[in-house]
Measured scan of single mutants.
Amino acid sequence: MDCGICYAYQLDGTIPDQVCDNSQCGQPFHQICLYEWLRGLLTSRQSFNIIFGECPYCSKPITLKMS
């Protein structure tokens, strides 16, 4: 499936590997796309290497662990 942010399947050789945990959403994202999206939200917060925010599609909580 394509990334829900950039709408591409491959981005710099990677495929969407982050998925919204909401079973009714399940939208996939590239890690870098989701990172940039969450960084741009005023409501997002970060604790060590984990960013907490809202899914761009369903607005439910989503987390991103940076590797």
Results as ranks from 00 to 15, higher is better:
Leu42Pro: 14
Val19Asp: 02
Asp2Ser: 07
Ile62Lys: 00
Cys3Pro: 02
Pro28Arg: 11
Trp37Gly: 03
Ile50Gln: 13
Pro28Cys: 09
Cys6Met: 06
Thr14Lys: 10
Gly53Arg: 02
Cys20Ser: 00
Thr14Ala: 13
Pro16Trp: 02
Ser59Ala: 08
Cys33Asp: 01
Gln31Trp: 07
Arg39Ile: 03
Tyr35His: 09
Thr14Ser: 09
Ile32Asp: 05
Ser59Gly: 12
Leu38Thr: 15
Gln31Pro: 12
Tyr57Glu: 12
Asp17Ala: 09
Asn22Glu: 00
Ile32Asn: 04
Asp21Leu: 11
His30Ala: 00
Gln18Val: 14
Trp37Glu: 02
Gly26Arg: 11
Asn22Lys: 03
Gln31Leu: 11
Arg39Cys: 05
Trp37Met: 05
Gly40Val: 08
Leu34Ser: 01
Leu38Met: 07
Tyr35Glu: 06
Gln24Ser: 09
Cys55Thr: 01
Leu38Cys: 04
Gln27Pro: 01
Gly13Arg: 04
Gln10Ala: 11
Glu36Asp: 15
Tyr9Ile: 14
Pro16Ala: 04
Gln27Arg: 10
Cys3Ala: 02
Gln24Trp: 06
Ser59Trp: 13
Cys58Gln: 00
Val19Leu: 06
Gly26Tyr: 09
Arg39Trp: 03
Pro28Tyr: 08
Tyr57Pro: 06
Gln31Ser: 13
Tyr7Ile: 02
Cys20Thr: 00
Pro28Thr: 04
Thr43Pro: 05
Val19Arg: 08
Gly26Lys: 08
Asp21Glu: 11
Gln31Tyr: 07
His30Pro: 00
Val19Pro: 03
Cys33Leu: 01
Ile15Ala: 12
Ile50His: 05
Pro56Val: 04
Asp17Trp: 05
Tyr9Arg: 14
Pro28Met: 12
Leu11Ile: 15
Gly13Ala: 05
Asp2Gln: 08
Ile62Thr: 05
Tyr7Trp: 13
Ser23Asp: 15
Ser59Thr: 15
Gln46Gly: 07
Gln27Trp: 03
Gln10Trp: 12
Lys65Arg: 13
Phe48Gly: 15
Gly13Cys: 05
Cys6Ala: 02
Leu64Asp: 11
His30Val: 00
Asp2Asn: 12
Ser23Arg: 11
Ala8Met: 13
Asp17Ser: 10
Thr43Cys: 10
Cys55Arg: 05
Arg39Pro: 05
Leu41Met: 06
Gly26Leu: 14
Phe48Leu: 12
Ser44Ile: 05
Gln27Cys: 03
Asp21Pro: 11
Tyr7Val: 02
Asp2Arg: 09
Asp17Thr: 10
Tyr9Ser: 06
Pro56Leu: 02
Cys58Thr: 03
Arg45Ile: 04
Ile15Ser: 06
Gly26Pro: 04
Cys3Leu: 00
Lys65Gln: 02
Ser23Tyr: 04
Gln10Lys: 14
Gly13Ser: 12
Ser47Lys: 07
Gln24Asn: 11
Ile15Arg: 05
Ile15Met: 07
Ile62Arg: 02
Met66Glu: 15
Gly13Leu: 04
Thr63Tyr: 11
Gly13Met: 02
Tyr57Arg: 13
Gly40Ser: 12
Glu36Trp: 07
Gln18Leu: 08
